[in-house]
Amino acid sequence: MIDGLWENIFKKTKEENNILVILKGVPMLNNLSNNELREFERIVHRRNYKANENIFWEGEPGVGMYIIQSGSVKIYNTLPDSGIKELAILKMGDFFGELALLDESPRSASANALEACQILGLYRPDLFDLLERRPKLGLKVMTKLAQIIGNRLRITSSKLQSIYTAEFYRDKNQLKIDSNLTPLLEKVEVKDKNDTLDNLT
């Protein structure tokens, strides 16, 4: 009991450095100076989740983004027949739910802690507040966020384009017509992690 207590006290300073390192690893924040990152460190919430605890649920209004400090998180969809479709497993340093930094639209997937997790929460209200307080810093971050999302949109639309062309040629060759795009979408292979994140938030 006492050991644990002391351990926690000494852990603290290490942990704070750790937060800066982890924040630096997030693409949205990687062009910030250490001083600017400290502002984010101040508004980030440190949350602990038990194994099998949900971080957020599909369909709920999104409030912010999460960065995994330790542990792993499963992102999944609940299917109509109450089954589960796993979308991704995320590890330390990964982030998810970043679209909620922009507006309150419902989450498109649920997130569940696979083991005991330490997660940093960066929430929209705190971010907006920071934007008001430090507009220059805010401009940097928001531009970066817009670039990331723009990139994703480009990737998504090029994927969609390739699906359409594939279908067009199939039509031409008098093959079986499949108007429903979803089974095709599932066949598109996930190449890297950034691609998986398209499906998230």
């Binding site: 919430h45 949350r47 989740y49 209004p61 409030v63 309150e104 209200p125």
Partner: peptide, 25 residues
């Protein structure tokens, strides 16, 4: 005020955390 709010909101359980944060804001 900000730090006070953050400290208080920290004690909200995970289940209600997002909702509380959003509501408080």
């Amino acid at each position: 005020g900000r730090r006070l709010k953050k400290t208080i909101i920290q004690f909200v359980p995970n289940r209600y955390f997002e909702m509380t944060l959003n509501m408080v804001y």
